[in-house]
Design a protein around this nucleic acid. Structure first.
Lengths: 334, 334
DNA sequence: GCTCTGTACGTAAACGTTTACTTGTTTTGA
DNA sequence: TCAAAACAAGTAAACGTTTACGTACAGAGC
């Protein structure tokens, strides 16, 4: 069995209180006692039991991450950012996923509460009204990352999707494009879907361009959504966009894949603009032009905000983080 | 403050023992007592405190993951696999990274031991002799994933890198290639480096081909390593390989990027074979031919093995998982 | 009526820490 | 020299559970 401070106390001939004080460098002991205690601790391979500490201190120094699924690379960057900051602050991170459509959300949250996480970061989870009540009942601070709650009743960190879509569409227009498809967006998604549609629409109108609803292709941000949309576009000659604004980098790659098969050249025959600036965007050839979300930094910021909120006991303020248009090789001027 | 079983006990007029029995469905109480207790628990929003449970049960039902960094997408798939299985077994997962070159390894491991994780999965961490001693001192089961310890002194789950490199190289030879570069490999890396060099070399020899050491380009599995190597290849006319076997998908994309810049067509002018089958491989155009490692399944398997090892108290057996050659669009026959 | 068995609880110790309080000893300062 | 202050260390309670053990009571069987 693992050594405890009792063992150390017994062997070094002091009380557990003194051992604790030595180990935590609280002072109130002679140097030679400290030396002895430390030596015994090392000898026994002593490691503090955080369960016991958590119990008495009523604090676990742990935060939880919930996300739909861990599988995609941009989540990896987010997790990385969160973990880095949490580590710096002496927090550990526990990880669960909520399943597609949040099927496992409630269960995951319970899990975390039982683990007594001090706060939770919910990444890309779309909350319904009913979830909000359950979350309130949990009595644990929850910060949303790349997501937003109905009525903004939870703090969030995200980019302004409307503004990003507006800027992206405008950029395409500035490159001389007049017929621009919007691909892969989910109109039922009130956080990353509708605002992007609205931004796209507004940019067209501001430029005096006609909005063609047939150029908006619904989807779920996946590669396949891009493939499907592009296949439809090729099969519908009357559409003929000169540029497509894809709602994720993966979707953009789906569009490009179909073009490649069909012998269309990017960007000469079609301009493609992605969204996310995930790691792949800079690795494909031609490199993908895209609107960048600073995932790593967003993760850091979220962890920062959550932890300082925890420590100061202040409510967490939402924050809009800046996006950036990254021009690479998939958009050309007409 | 959060409600405890004492609160429930007091309000429902029974002892904490009975509350515990009801909550854990252990029997030994009348139905009406159970109803009452459950109602009170719900009313108070009671959640079990796992720190207390861990303390008394001497078990945390938590496993830890350590990896060099979380940033890349193939780690995401691995984490996903681990988390899924762990969840099914009622375990939670805590996550830390070891930093580049394991700078943070010892610290991370201590962290986990203090958290009393029951076992650890080390993903892609290269251990030195000295680490092994520290790990043994930790007295926590450690299973390596996509890694291997000196002298195989720790159980591992990984593909046979030698065999995979042999098969990949042979496949290229079967496509008619005679001059094949090996790109991005780290000769100092005894787990993913040297075995692949050996497999590559052996395949050439088996085919009666001459080994040209200049065709082996050292690197660190990154995109940039691929770029550097390919740049050198273009600048060195006497080499002129017709195929390159890149040691990761990202490296392969680096190679392809330089070719794209130089106007070389893939696969007509150069065949490129990747390694990993990370999510990107199927999304780029042309889609990347690669040797697939089943990351998600490896994660599942590792979690499985670790947890059953924990529960049965049996030593964990190492396991080689099968790789698969995936033919897509970047390799052509000469 | 009596013992026996089973059920339905309650009591209290234990898990490994931290920490308020107490006690005893040494140092300080006038 | 002596009281006061400072220091070093110990005692024991507390954190929230689980669980071995004890007990009271009801019904069964004779």
């Amino acid at each position: 069995m693992r050594a405890t401070i009792k063992d150390i106390a017994k062997i070094s001939g002091v009380s557990t209180a003194t051992v604790s004080r030595v180990l935590n460098e609280l002072g109130g002991y002679r140097p030679e006692v400290a030396t002895k205690v430390l030596a015994v601790a090392k000898e026994l391979g002593y490691r503090r039991n955080d369960s016991a500490v958590s119990l008495v201190k009523q604090a676990t120094r742990t935060i939880g991450i919930v996300m739909p699924t861990v599988a995609t690379s941009f989540y990896a960057q987010i997790i990385n950012g969160i973990e880095d900051r949490a580590y710096q602050a002496g927090y550990s991170v526990i990880l669960t996923h909520a399943g597609v459509n949040n099927v496992r959300l409630q269960e995951s949250l319970n899990f975390m509460v039982e683990r007594r996480v001090e706060g939770i970061i919910g990444v890309s989870i779309n909350l319904a009204q009913i979830d909000l009540q359950a979350i309130a009942a949990l009595a644990v601070p929850l910060l949303l990352l790349s997501a937003q709650a109905p009525g903004n009743r939870l703090p969030y960190v995200k980019v302004d999707d409307y503004a990003a879509a507006y800027a992206a569409t405008t950029d395409l227009i500035d490159h001389g494009h007049r017929t621009i498809a919007l691909v892969g967006v989910d109109p039922a998604d009130s956080v990353a879907g509708r605002p992007r549609i609205a931004g796209y629409t507004a940019a067209l109108q501001a430029a005096g361009l006609r909005l063609d609803r047939n150029l908006i292709f619904p989807g779920d941000y996946t590669f396949e959504a891009g493939q499907r949309a592009m296949t439809t576009i090729l099969a519908t000659p009357e559409l003929r966009p000169t540029a497509v604004f894809a709602v994720s980098d993966e979707t953009a790659l789906g569009v490009i894949a179909v073009c490649y098969q069909a012998g269309l050249r990017i960007p000469q025959d079609l301009s493609v603009l992605g969204y996310d600036n995930s790691a792949i965007a800079s690795m494909v050839s031609p490199a993908l032009s895209t609107v960048a979300q600073p995932f790593y930094e967003m993760g850091q910021l979220a962890a920062d905000k959550l932890i300082t909120g925890l420590q100061t006991n202040q409510p967490i303020q939402s924050q809009i983080v800046p996006f950036k248009l990254i021009h690479r090789g998939t958009v050309s001027s007409l």
